[in-house]
Amino acid sequence: MNRLQGDVVILSLIDNLKEKGSWCGETHIQKATYFLQELFDIPLGFEFILYKHGPFSFDLSDELTAMRADMLIKLQPQPRPYGPSLVTRDGSKSIKNHFSSTLKKYDSNIKFVTNKFRDRGVAELERLATALYVTLEINPNKSSEFRAQCIIELKPHVNIEEARAAVKEIDEIIRDSQKRK
């Protein structure tokens, strides 16, 4: 997948999230892209590390800035307590039209991620994305309880009940996504 194809996937994700009423801040895009890339093996090529608010990609953050430079997206300030939203600009339409087969190929994956995560707050996204990170990167074969303990070790402000719920939900989401591959 080349850079512009990756951009149209992100643009479509932003449009879908926005259409479904998501506030669509950078944290939302970061987490939604992480879910998209990892659950469906979409070759976006972003490297995620565990950082603030869970898995985070500096490369994706740079790409979002580059997309602003290319007039594909813009920041839209929101009233507190929300951070700014990212919204697509008119300039994005032509490349989305041009790469329509890429969009078609990943459309159902984008819709799956949008539906699962559109109305989640930052704190909830952080827990779910960290649960996925722990499951995929750190302890793929460990029990739910072990992974929940791992989450609270990595993110001390998350309590054990929240961590257990996040692991349970992410296991369901992984199962659902596998059916759709």
Partner: peptide, 11 residues
Amino acid sequence: PKEEDGSIEPV
């Protein structure tokens, strides 16, 4: 704290 939607991580 960034205080975005319930997050308390400091920046």
